[in-house]
């Protein structure tokens, strides 16, 4: 992994101007973006793989207009926590959860809740780009509507949605002339932005990013980070990363996890400058992990 803490070549990029947000960033008056209502609330969440408990009694909330980074050493349960937020965790045989995850006040794990409906309202992007190899670029972006079965938008509407999503993912200019080509022909970074466009197309309220730049080169990483920064106004973003610099650059809240526990969650600047927990301090000063 390239060290992304090195000086950025393009200081005029907006998100670099706020390398470390002030503690006031979360208060509505001083923040660059307004913090909105509570979108997801997690209460006493445990996640298991078979008998192994890899997320322990986590309580955390994610608000509109924020980008929350979850950091921690590998194996700390940060990806598992993320996958619990849209019920992807349970797709692994033997995996289960306990506790509550409220999406707009409804427990997504309640009896009668449908994981399909939950996942349609929450977009997700994975470590490695996952374009569908049998589909064109356009069909990839529109893929979220194919799974619905019922009310599919018309062709014209779909074309608009595809264009808008690709623009939001900052990919439109690069692919607008070859929407019919296979998505496999794109570079790794383009594929990942395509996956972000695909996730945004259904207009989700929440976007989950699971180490989205882990398999990308530095240039592509920078583009994806810019994108995440720009998305914060329109969608609630939760990003898992093992790269503290990335967390500092793109998020305004940061959560630190260790051994399945949520150690500390705070405004990003506060967590990196004045951590409350000695374990957080040890981690961000590089004493382990």
């Amino acid at each position: 992994m390239t060290d992304l803490a090195s000086p950025r070549p393009t200081p005029q990029r907006p998100y670099v101007a706020v390398p470390v947000a002030t503690p006031a960033a979360v208060s509505p008056n001083a923040a660059p973006v307004t913090v909105g209502a509570e979108r997801i609330a997690v209460h006493h969440l445990d996640a298991f793989y078979g008998a192994t408990r890899s997320v322990r009694d986590v309580n955390i909330a994610f608000h509109d207009g924020t980008v929350t980074a979850i950091i921690g050493p590998s194996g700390c349960g940060k990806s598992t926590l993320l996958r619990c937020l849209n019920r992807m965790h349970e797709t692994i045989p033997g995996a289960r959860t306990e506790g509550e995850v409220l999406l707009d006040g409804h427990d997504i794990y309640a009896r009668g809740a449908n994981p399909i409906q939950v996942r349609r309202r929450i977009g997700m992007v994975f470590q490695r780009p996952t374009p569908f190899p049998t589909m064109s670029i356009r069909d990839n972006v529109a893929a979220g509507f194919k799974g619905l079965g019922g009310d599919v938008p018309s062709r014209r509407e779909l074309d608009e949605i595809v264009e808008r999503s690709l623009q939001r993912a900052a990919l439109w200019d690069e692919v607008k002339d070859r929407l019919k080509d296979s998505a496999i022909g794109l570079s790794g970074g383009q594929q990942q932005r395509l996956c972000i466009a695909r996730a945004l197309a259904t207009n989700p309220r929440v976007l989950l990013l699971d180490e989205p730049t882990a398999s990308l080169d530095p240039i592509s990483t920078q583009r994806v980070e810019e994108l995440v920064y720009e998305l914060r106004g329109s969608v609630t973003v939760v990003i898992v990363t093992h790269n503290m610099q990335q967390a500092a650059r793109v998020s305004n809240r940061t959560a630190f996890m260790l051994a399945g526990e949520l150690v500390e969650v705070a405004p990003t600047s506060a967590l990196f400058t004045t951590p409350k927990d000695p374990r957080t301090e040890a981690y961000i000063t590089g004493r382990f992990g």
């Binding site: 019920r87 506790g99 707009d104 409804h106 009896r111 994981p115």
Partner: peptide
């Protein structure tokens, strides 16, 4: 659990609205 029902029986409160079904 992935098919429909809740994986934990703790809160049988039925979910109405968008995410049900």
């Amino acid at each position: 659990a992935a098919i429909g029902a809740a994986p934990h029986g703790a809160a049988p409160a039925a979910v109405e609205g968008a995410i049900a079904g």
